[in-house]
């Protein structure tokens, strides 16, 4: 049986927890586990010891794809000046109700 560092290392998982019915799952942290089932159980023991959750998602960290931080400006700034996407952009008379 070969014995090296990687044969005993467990992958890293990201943990998402729904704290209450009706809310989104939110990133809580990460942990190591050998498989998905274990990751869910570890998340239960590590991140919900104080009743912090009612549902858990886990995903192996290597499966997460992220936007690049150095592209943040071209990615997100263009949304800054699109004020017409907000309801307050439109001028309507006060007597108009239920709109």
């Amino acid at each position: 049986m070969e014995k090296n560092a990687s044969s005993e290392s467990w992958p890293l998982w990201e943990v998402f927890i729904r704290t209450r019915q009706g809310l989104n799952h939110k990133h809580a942290g990460s942990l190591h586990a050998a498989d998905a089932q274990m990751a869910i159980e570890n998340a239960r023991d590590v991140y919900t010891r104080r009743n912090e959750g009612i549902s858990i998602w886990v995903v192996e960290s290597r499966h997460i794809h992220a936007s690049a931080p150095d592209e943040a400006a071209s990615f997100f700034d263009p949304a800054n000046d699109k004020v017409y996407r907000y309801p307050t952009f439109y001028n309507l008379p006060d007597e108009l109700k239920n709109i």
Binding site: S7, E8, S9, A34, D35, M38
Partner: peptide
Amino acid sequence: GAWVREAAAAYAGKKN
């Protein structure tokens, strides 16, 4: 704990 971590990793590998 090394053999324990190793066993769980090997088992996960088999199931995968």
